[in-house]
């Protein structure tokens, strides 16, 4: 019934993994990447960690952004890994693809990543967020840094454009701060 072909060409494909504490806005950061990239016509997928895993205090999500239809939505070897707390760094540093990018939250993680075969970016996410108006926007700082280093994922304009859609109504008053935090992260990268 449905027939198609896969060319095996060199399409843009970025597998991103976000990890941190529950409450740090991990799932939201992933959704914002999806919405922003969608807005720029790209294919996206987003899978959160869920269930009992969620209750344990860590949260993570896998995001794929690509020019082509997405095959596997899973990201076992991420091109970009964003870690916002120490347990996430310890757990996920090893899975970053060689040559990939690891962005870590220097405000909360006190021992730097050790890998030498990947690009490493330290961001003082909580400090930058505090300066922008609230520590709760630390996820936005990380997101700003991500799109600076990997502009093919989404542009800053696209991210800013989806803020209101992505953030639930009861947190929307924070969007002024979120905008500053995004810019702060972008600057810091």
């Amino acid at each position: 019934m449905s027939r198609s072909t896969v060319t095996g060409g060199d399409a843009m494909y970025v597998g991103i993994f976000f990890a941190g504490f529950g409450g740090q806005g991990i799932i939201l950061a992933g959704r914002m990447v999806c919405l922003a990239a969608m807005g720029e016509g790209k294919h996206v997928s987003h899978i959160p960690s869920y269930g009992a895993e969620m209750r344990g205090g860590t949260a993570n999500c896998s995001v794929v952004v690509s020019d082509e239809e997405i095959g596997s939505p899973l990201v076992p070897r991420p091109d970009v890994c964003v870690v916002m707390n120490t347990p996430s760094l310890l757990k996920f540093q090893p899975i970053v693809k060689p040559g990939g990018l690891l962005i870590w939250n220097e405000s909360l993680i006190h021992s730097a990543p050790e890998r030498t075969d990947i690009e490493i970016l330290a961001v003082r996410a909580n400090d930058i967020a505090e300066a922008a108006g609230s520590y709760r926007s630390a996820n936005m700082v990380m997101l700003g840094a991500l799109i600076k280093r990997r502009p093919s994922v989404a542009s800053m304009n696209a991210v800013l454009a989806v803020l209101n859609e992505a953030v639930s109504a009861r947190h929307r008053e924070l969007n002024q701060v979120n905008r500053k935090a995004l810019a702060g992260g972008y600057e810091a990268a």
């Binding site: 959704r31 999806c34 969608m38 294919h43 996206v44 997928s45 987003h46 899978i47 959160p48 869920y50 997405i70 939505p73 899973l74």
Partner: peptide, 10 residues
């Protein structure tokens, strides 16, 4: 499956 149910896509 659980992943497909939890997954968001456009």
């Amino acid at each position: 499956d659980g992943f497909t149910g939890q997954m968001s896509e456009p």
